[in-house]
Design a protein around this nucleic acid. Structure first.
Lengths: 185, 185
DNA sequence: CCAGAAGTAGATCGATTGGTCTATTTCCGA
DNA sequence: TCGGAAATAGACCAATCGATCTACTTCTGG
């Protein structure tokens, strides 16, 4: 095992998909994916069954990474309140990045018209995992209604990602952090 | 004048576009648009120059209507604080609607990869008009920093529209209203 | 060393896309 | 009433889409 050196076609396809689906949307052509992954056409259909299968696999993979990112962002401090507010500091950096283009999962849901597309289940799962993370933090913080507060924090996060992608204001995360601080109390 | 009875092809195209671009995204085919508008193919290219021109015109038209909707939603009360909070009550109804599919302008920006597409200027203009509306209300309310508070209200609105389209929780507007209330003080 | 799996390269297919064009009909004002 | 603009219907085009298939090469384990 230990397939570290020189990632195979499957891994290269996942990385190319993660990059191109995010920067150009789910409507990028198969040709562009194959070119960036430097992979033969056949490999895509062998490994993922088609473009839709790749989309689903990419979302699942990105979901793992993003949940890990949120966990790490929350691990920045010991005190629960500081942990949650620190998350918005990390979001501020994320959104400020030049190639930030909004929430991958929301964009995927919008791009895939078919409500039966398997990728929708993946985006739902991601949101549930994120919500669970917030509930855990709020419970540790001793909040009265962790479920409701988590919903509000989630709304603040999504709002930050939207405002950050429109570039109307450079630091939406700071506005959200301020609201989150009042919420946590 | 008074072109009320039996709207012409141009108007029918605008209505069909406003409906289909919203419910199915900007990627709907020209054929579907022509069919729903009950209009000849040539009429589209005569009036709007092409699909992109129709998209731009539809966004401009919807923008007018939506700004009017926000103005009317704010006109529900006399006291500034009640006016702003009432807006979130109206958003609650809007999001609860079965065919609600999120923010039209954000979805359009995501769907149009080309950053030079004229529709982007229209979505930006809409957001600026909405922001101006919020600043006016906050100024009337005597808020310390109307600009910053307007940014925060805008973030709460966009967050509500996102959360409402994912259907994870039925009443994101109530969560946002609660946060808005703390913000207004 | 060699057999088979995996990967590559690229032609090709059918469907669909946005857009152009021709021919015909409808409608309205001078 | 008549003439021209506007609208209709639909054939048609080039480009692009995702997907399939064949032929060849590379890599690897027994």
């Amino acid at each position: 095992m230990s397939a570290d050196k020189a990632p195979g076609p499957r891994e290269r396809l996942l990385e190319a998909g993660q990059d191109l689906f995010y920067s150009q949307g789910a409507s990028v052509g198969v040709d562009a994916l194959l070119k960036q992954a430097n992979v033969a056409r056949r490999s895509l259909y062998e490994h993922f069954g088609g473009k839709d299968g790749l989309i689903e696999a990419v979302i699942r993979r990105a979901s793992e990474q993003d949940i890990a990112w949120y966990e790490e962002a929350l691990a920045g401090a010991e005190e629960p309140r500081t942990r949650l507010l620190g998350l918005f500091d990390r979001l501020d950096e994320l959104v400020a990045n030049a190639d930030f283009r909004g929430c991958r999962y929301f964009a995927t849901d919008l791009a895939l018209t078919d409500p039966q597309h398997p990728a929708h289940a993946e985006t739902d799962a991601f949101r549930q995992r994120l919500r669970a993370l917030l509930v855990t933090e709020l419970t540790a913080l001793g909040h009265d209604d962790p479920g409701r507060a988590a919903e509000q924090l989630h709304l603040l996060i999504e709002g930050t990602l939207v405002m950050g992608s429109t570039r109307g204001n450079p630091h939406p995360a700071r506005a959200a952090r301020d609201l989150a601080a009042r919420l946590i109390g």
